[in-house]
Amino acid sequence: MHDMPGYDYHIDIPGTVLFDGTQAMKGYALNKMCYDFNKAVNRDGFKADEEGWMAKYGLTEPQKDAVRQRDILAMIDAGGNIYYLAKLAGIFKLSVQDVGGLQTGRTTEEFKEYLASQA
C-alpha cells in the first residue's frame, strides 16, 4: 500500500493531524467509546460515571486527560476521529460550530461569521 503512485504517507499540513492508520490504531479505544454514544443509554452511563466509562473502554492516560479537560483538539491528537468525537462534543454541550472554531483558532462567533462569508 505504501508503494501506491502519487500517494505520500508523509503529507505535512501545518496545524493538522491526519487521521491515518497510525492514528486509527492510537485512537481505537476513544473512538469505540464515542461510537457507542450513538445509544442514549451509553451517553447516560458516561455522564453518570465518566471515569468508570473511560476505564471500561481502556482509554490511555492522554485520552482520559483530554476527555477530563473537554479538550477536543487533544482528543484528535490522541487518535480521536472528529466524526466519532462529535457525539462526545454533544455530551459536553459543544456544537459543530464550537468545534469548528477550535479547529480553526477562532471563537464560535468568528467561525459562524466565517461560514456565513463563504456562502
Rank of each mutant, 00 (worst) to 15 (best):
H2K: 15
H2Q: 13
H2L: 14
D3Y: 05
M4Q: 10
M4P: 02
M4N: 05
P5F: 08
P5N: 11
P5G: 08
D8H: 09
Y9G: 15
Y9K: 08
H10K: 14
H10F: 06
H10D: 14
I11K: 14
I11N: 11
D12L: 05
G15Y: 02
T16G: 00
V17F: 06
V17Y: 06
V17C: 07
L18I: 14
F19N: 05
F19M: 11
G21A: 09
G21W: 05
Q23I: 03
Q23N: 09
A24D: 02
M25G: 08
M25V: 14
M25W: 03
K26R: 15
G27I: 00
Y28G: 09
Y28S: 13
K32R: 15
M33I: 09
M33C: 11
C34L: 05
D36T: 11
D36G: 10
F37Q: 03
N38K: 12
N38W: 09
A40P: 01
N42V: 12
N42Y: 10
N42R: 11
R43F: 02
R43D: 01
R43V: 06
D44N: 14
D44S: 12
G45V: 05
A48N: 15
D49F: 08
E51H: 12
G52H: 07
W53Y: 15
M54N: 00
M54V: 06
K56T: 08
K56H: 11
K56N: 06
Y57C: 06
L59H: 04
L59T: 03
T60A: 04
E61A: 09
P62E: 02
K64A: 10
D65Y: 04
A66W: 02
A66P: 02
A66M: 02
V67R: 01
R68Y: 08
Q69T: 10
R70V: 07
R70W: 05
R70C: 07
I72M: 12
I72V: 15
L73H: 06
M75K: 02
I76L: 08
G79R: 02
G79T: 02
G80I: 01
N81D: 13
I82M: 11
Y83F: 12
Y83I: 14
Y83G: 12
K87L: 06
L88H: 00
L88N: 01
A89E: 01
A89C: 08
A89Y: 01
G90L: 03
F92M: 06
F92Q: 05
F92D: 05
K93A: 13
S95N: 09
V96R: 10
V96H: 03
V99Q: 01
G101Y: 01
G101W: 04
Q103P: 00
Q103D: 00
Q103Y: 00
T104F: 12
G105D: 07
E109N: 10
F111Y: 15
K112I: 11
K112A: 13
K112G: 03
K112P: 01
Y114K: 12
Y114W: 14
A119C: 01
